[in-house]
């Protein structure tokens, strides 16, 4: 990143700079505070929390809440912990992200390099899926999932997320490929490469940045989705729904430390994706809009 931004910073004096860093530091602390509270409280026994001091470090450090949240906490009626739901989420997210990203790339490739009559209208229609609120499609979607026999299954959820995701991924790839020189495709055609060969050998190898954007976007959206998971999850509910069931249960003692641990567990994968690929995210978002 340092190379990419080299020479674009404005020259400022020392005092101004100190001030800027100070303000930034305050904001960073402010944003990190909730996370601090979650981590700290997930590592103490319940009586320390109910005893009052939420902000203090634990007197007695324990990872018991984490173990409990993972494998033994009461989710609904079963004391299974979040583990099976975490697995559900993974089983849903991986194919959903892979399929929607692949389809988006293919759509973007066709819409920019194999133009046909009405392609802009088609693209416009695809973009609709980015703007239609989830709630509107719930009932028709439930009907369709029921008819094709995927209601309450993970493949059903994958299908829903792929349908909703393709609009965005198409938008990303279309804009990215629009800046990709068409002469290269023509050269490959003359070299004898067909539709899919050009896609595999010429287009995909240079699609790294936009693929990162698409994967991050889809991963966070699909992982964090609650509505579709709760509506269509049936017996294979994702992590978000389980977390809700864990935290919202109205019977028994509220185990806040377990709740905190569970919430962090639920957020961990997206956090990880951002940390690993985040810098490519910004770069990729800019790639479509700025020439060169």
């Amino acid at each position: 990143m340092s190379i990419a931004t080299q020479g674009t910073d404005v020259n400022t004096g020392k005092i101004a700079r100190t001030f800027i860093y100070l303000v930034l530091l305050v904001f960073a602390l402010f944003y990190l505070l909730p996370f601090f509270v979650m981590v700290v409280n997930s590592l103490k026994p319940l009586d320390e929390i109910t005893g009052g001091n939420m902000m203090a470090l634990p007197d007695k450090w324990t990872i018991q809440p984490w173990l409990s949240a993972w494998s033994s906490a009461q989710i609904g009626v079963e004391p299974t912990g979040l583990k099976p739901y975490f697995v559900n989420s993974i089983l849903m997210v991986v194919p959903a992200v892979a399929i929607s990203t692949f389809l988006g790339a293919l759509n973007g490739y066709v819409l920019t390099k194999w133009r046909f009559r009405g392609d802009t209208i088609l693209f416009g229609l695809l973009l609709f899926s980015c703007f239609i609120p989830f709630q509107i499609v719930l009932i028709p979607m439930a009907t369709i999932l029921g008819k094709i026999g995927l209601a309450g299954t993970i493949p059903g959820l994958v299908l829903v997320h792929v349908v909703y995701g393709v609009g965005f991924t198409t938008l990303y790839y279309r804009n990215y490929y629009a800046a990709f020189p068409t002469e290269l495709v023509r050269a490959a055609m003359m070299d004898g490469a067909g539709f899919f060969r050009i896609f595999w050998r010429i287009m995909l190898p240079v699609s790294g940045p936009i693929t990162v954007v698409s994967v991050i976007w889809q991963f966070t959206n699909v992982w964090n989705d609650f509505l579709f998971g709760a509506s269509f999850g049936g017996q294979s509910q994702p992590m978000t729904v389980a977390l809700n069931n864990l935290v919202q249960s109205s019977t028994g003692v509220k185990e806040y430390n377990v709740h905190f641990a569970g919430a962090i567990l639920a957020a961990l994968p997206t956090l990880l994706v951002y940390i690993v690929a985040g810098r490519y995210f910004v770069r990729g978002l800019m790639a479509g809009s700025v020439k060169g």
Binding site: E183, L184, R186, A187, M190, D191, G192, A193, I202
Partner: peptide, 19 residues
């Protein structure tokens, strides 16, 4: 099809595959 004409073309932008 272009690839079956036994011709080759040099493009203005060279169109070299960057990868």
């Amino acid at each position: 099809h272009p690839s079956n004409r036994n011709i080759a073309m040099v493009f203005q932008s060279y169109a070299l595959y960057p990868n």
